[in-house]
């Protein structure tokens, strides 16, 4: 278990002064992930908010080696970096023990980068892939992704008069990753710093590919006031919309179990992206979303009890 004091007093690896929105969870996630890393790390980022706000020539928020290649290929890029590390270490040209972390948003991970991620895990590259999941393409201006939940308003799944936001349910990427049998996989969120730090450390210790899906509220796309980011993050866990769990060696473990499972409406009504659902002529979208959340939670309870 990490101590906050110890985390807070180490040298910053992801610096302030970048251009993220106030209340941005993606940058909080990046900073926390790097804080958690106890070994020297090399970082890659997919095109997306984190990449855009953290680098603009001649500035960089990254105080660790960093590479950005393109949108759909951070997993492949880091596969190459890790392969080079193995080659050069064998030759004696690299002495240090390094770790590799890839960052991608839900666009770069759930959608356009899914194949690349699958390849990286299947080839067993020892890279930690971190998805900062803000449930839509925020960088291009809040378009739907396969991580966008049922009913959410985005600019390509708008709250219309005929169709109230996104019709479909979310893709369960964490389970898709688990089907690859990675060395370690987990879901976490920034509101639970200790959960996040512990999982990053486990992932970096795991001898093989690892994956952490970090629920990262986006105040702009989700339409809430910036100071509510941590509250929204915590409510996602308390409503079981975003269960915190991990998978290793064939076993599931729920790492934070809410004392009382709140209805999802407590999470939804804080955010403008769901506002239209409360004025809609029926409660079908909310019911469908609640049913999905319940189903996944129940299944997780069963799996973690095994």
């Amino acid at each position: 278990m990490a101590s906050l004091k110890q985390l807070a007093t180490q040298k910053e690896k992801f610096m302030g002064g970048h251009r993220a929105c106030a209340g941005c969870a993606a940058t909080i996630a990046a900073r926390m992930v790097l804080m958690a890393a106890e070994q020297p790390v090399v970082v890659g980022a997919a095109t997306g908010c984190l990449e855009v706000v953290s680098t603009i020539y001649p500035y960089s928020a990254w105080n660790v080696p960093y590479v950005h290649n393109a949108f759909e290929n951070v997993a492949a890029t880091m596969s190459g970096v890790e392969a080079a590390y193995r080659a050069l270490k064998k030759k004696g040209m690299i002495k240090k023990d390094l770790r590799f972390i890839a960052f991608g948003g839900d666009g770069g991970t759930y959608d356009i980068g899914l194949q690349s991620l699958s390849g990286m895990i299947e080839r067993r590259h020892r890279v930690l892939y971190v998805c900062y999941n803000n449930e839509a393409y925020m960088n291009t201006g809040i378009q739907r992704s396969s991580a966008t939940p049922r009913g959410a308003h985005t600019t390509t799944s708008p709250a219309g008069t005929e169709i109230p936001g996104k019709i479909q349910l979310r893709k369960n990427l964490t389970e898709i990753v688990i089907a690859h049998e990675p060395a370690y996989a987990a879901q976490t969120t920034i509101g639970y710093w200790n959960d996040l730090v512990t999982k990053v450390r486990k992932a970096l210790e795991a001898d093989g590919p690892s994956f952490i899906n970090i629920y990262s509220p986006c105040r702009l796309g989700w339409a809430y006031v910036p100071e509510k980011t941590i509250k929204v993050s915590k409510l996602a866990v308390e409503t079981c919309i975003w269960p915190l769990y991990e998978y290793e060696n064939g076993k599931y473990r729920i790492t934070v179990k809410p004392k009382e499972k709140k209805p999802i409406t407590e999470f939804l009504n804080l955010q403008g992206r769901f506002g239209h659902l409360f004025k809609w002529h029926d409660d079908v979208p909310i019911k469908e979303y609640q049913a999905e959340v319940d189903m996944i939670w129940e299944r997780l309870l069963k799996r973690s009890a095994e």
Partner: peptide
């Protein structure tokens, strides 16, 4: 893409 990563690593 992996070539780009590996080449960036020297």
């Amino acid at each position: 893409s992996a070539c780009v990563g590996a080449s960036s690593a020297g």
